[in-house]
């Protein structure tokens, strides 16, 4: 998979763009009849694979691999869902409704409701609307995704100074990008960062949804996905 990497001055942003994983496709079980449960099973399988890819992606964020293993784990344990959801948001930007979890898995509002994901649908659509209004670029989206992980407010951080330096590096990269590419929009970095509370809210709702679905034994979930759900709340 090759990426059409544009000529971007900032090395961190360039590295983030180059590390963007190829989009995954949903793999619905061909023999199971369509149902809300099948939709959920397909979604959980997709998210588990996204999670694997995301952990690999995190290693390529400039500065991440310099953190201790304990801190890498801490950031991923608190920020994984935010990073996953930003991918969904990015993919859904072209649509005026629905959530595009994959090219072949687009869920509209009634489908989300029937699958028990309505409380996730509403904040995510609000987030998508915000990014549509901002006309967010791919560079900004990848920077925010890395920042969501870096800024995940993990509780058990071993070396707080290292995490702060990691955050600063990403923040500087975004500021540098905006100065060079969007000089006329002086408040743009602030506007982008002000979307992050809604992302966190969406992430909490998503975790609650999936935990509930697991507790109700509705959907079989992969071990990694369960392990990560276990770290939240």
């Amino acid at each position: 998979y090759t990426h059409p990497v544009k000529s971007i001055h900032n090395k961190v942003i360039s590295q983030l763009l180059a590390s963007e994983p190829a989009p995954l496709r949903a793999s619905p079980d061909p023999v199971t009849p369509d149902s809300d449960l099948k939709t959920l099973m397909t979604l959980c399988d997709l998210l588990n694979r996204e999670l694997l890819v995301m952990i690999s992606w995190a290693k390529h964020i400039p500065g991440f691999s310099s953190l201790s293993l304990v801190d890498q784990m801490a950031l991923l344990q608190s920020g994984w869902m935010e990073a996953l959801l930003l991918c969904v948001v990015w993919r859904s930007l072209a649509s005026t409704q629905g959530l595009e979890f994959a090219e072949n898995l687009h869920l509209n509002e009634p489908q989300c409701k029937n699958a028990g994901l309505l409380e996730l649908y509403t904040p995510l659509r609000l987030l998508i609307d915000k990014y549509q209004q901002l006309n967010i670029s791919h560079e900004e989206a990848v920077a925010l995704r890395a920042m969501a992980l870096a800024n995940s407010d993990a509780e058990h951080v071993e070396n707080g100074d290292s995490v702060l330096r990691f955050q600063d590096g990403l923040h500087e990269a975004l500021q540098d990008y905006e100065v060079n590419e969007r000089a006329a929009e002086t408040h743009r970095v602030g506007k982008l960062l002000m979307t992050l509370p809604l992302l966190r809210q969406s992430s909490h709702r998503a975790v609650q949804c999936f935990r509930r679905l697991h507790i109700q034994h509705l959907v079989p979930m992969h071990k990694l996905f369960l392990e990560m759900l276990d770290t939240k709340i």
């Binding site: 694997l52 890819v53 952990i55 690999s56 290693k59 293993l69 304990v70 890498q72 784990m73 991923l76 344990q77 071990k223 990694l224 392990e227 990560m228 276990d230 770290t231």
Partner: peptide
């Protein structure tokens, strides 16, 4: 880390976490 064995293993792997 005991509770999060898979994440721990994936991060320790030097190769991309693809499996």
């Amino acid at each position: 880390t005991e509770r999060h064995k898979i994440l721990h293993r994936l991060l320790q792997d030097s190769s991309p976490a693809d499996g």
